[in-house]
């Protein structure tokens, strides 16, 4: 945004100087960061507060911008009902990747989270639920050992407490910096879901923007019900990789939520505004055991 304004100011200055032959007399208005944002989809400028009040949905075109894990939890859960699980699990650097510690440190500072996944127990419209959210702003929501372990523990907690499970995914996939151990988290989380499934647990997976790679190819695709949030990119391989491999342009609407719906991969697409009430309804329908309510 600030680049956009600087650029406009520079163009205006050059227009005044070269065409109007006048020197710049105006002083640029100093707009602080974070007051306006530009919509990624329609490119219109939005007042940040308007966007926030609208749950991060563009008032002009309805595009759903990414929201962080805490905002998601506060939108979904009854007030003060959330108890976080395992907040103090932190990643190590198993491959000794030179930049990994610094990258993670930066993500911790910027997001205020210890890792890319927040899980815990909370209530959705009065229904006690094990809920977890991946945060795409933390290293692209990638799954390393900690994310895998936290997801697994959340599933296990849901099993023990006989709670329904809701996970919001937003991830670029397995975390490259932890190599093969990240890949193994795909098995670990899916294995925990296998047990949960055998016990008759209800798992609702919400795929938000973006859900790709190793997260899409493990727990995010294994819901009893899979919901895609509007404006989400969902798929296994990233569009850039596919384009490089097949050396042709990708069809319009490829890997959108609508694409996944028409190809039978998700049960429905939901607007963010309808998320809470729809999930509450589904949870109620699946609350077969007394302890669920």
């Amino acid at each position: 945004m600030s680049e956009f304004l600087d650029d406009r100011q520079a163009k205006l200055n050059s227009f005044r100087k070269n065409i109007l032959k006048k020197d710049t007399t105006t002083t640029p208005i100093n707009i602080p960061e974070g007051i306006f944002v530009q919509c990624e989809a329609c490119l219109k400028v939005i007042y940040q507060r308007t966007l926030d009040d609208n749950d991060g949905v563009c008032p002009h075109c309805g595009y759903h911008t990414k929201i962080n894990a805490l905002k998601r939890l506060s939108m979904m859960l009854d007030k003060e009902s959330f108890e976080e699980l395992d907040p103090l699990l932190i990643s190590v650097n198993p491959l000794k990747m030179p930049d990994y510690d610094a990258k993670r440190e930066k993500a911790i500072q910027e997001s205020g989270l210890n890792e890319a996944f927040v899980g815990g127990i909370g209530s959705i419209d009065g229904i006690k639920t094990a809920i977890g959210v991946l945060d795409a702003s933390f290293m692209m929501g990638s799954m390393g050992s900690v994310v895998g372990e936290k997801v697994t523990r959340l599933i296990e907690k849901a099993s023990i407490m006989h709670l329904p499970l809701v996970i919001f995914s937003a991830s670029g996939g397995a975390r490259m910096q932890e190599g093969i151990l990240s890949l193994m988290q795909m098995i670990k989380t899916s294995a925990a879901l296998a047990k949960f499934h055998e016990q008759g647990g209800f798992y609702l997976s919400v795929l938000t923007n973006p859900t790709t790679g190793g997260v899409a190819a493990s727990f995010a695709s294994l819901g009893d019900i899979n919901i895609a949030e509007r404006s989400s990119l969902i798929g296994f391989a990233g569009p850039r990789v596919i384009k490089q491999t097949i050396k042709q342009d990708l069809p319009e609407g490829f890997q959108t939520a609508e694409f996944q719906l028409s190809h039978g991969q998700v049960d429905m697409i939901l607007e963010r505004k309808k998320m809470r009430q729809t999930i509450a309804r589904l949870l109620r329908w699946h609350a077969s055991r007394e302890t669920d309510i």
């Binding site: 493990s218 727990f219 695709s221 798929g235 296994f236 391989a237």
Partner: peptide, 17 residues
């Protein structure tokens, strides 16, 4: 494209489970 259309992610995930 075909792999994505036919649910590559779901196919892998389901095998794991």
């Amino acid at each position: 494209i075909g792999a994505e259309e036919r649910g590559q992610a779901q196919a892998i995930a389901f095998n794991l489970r």
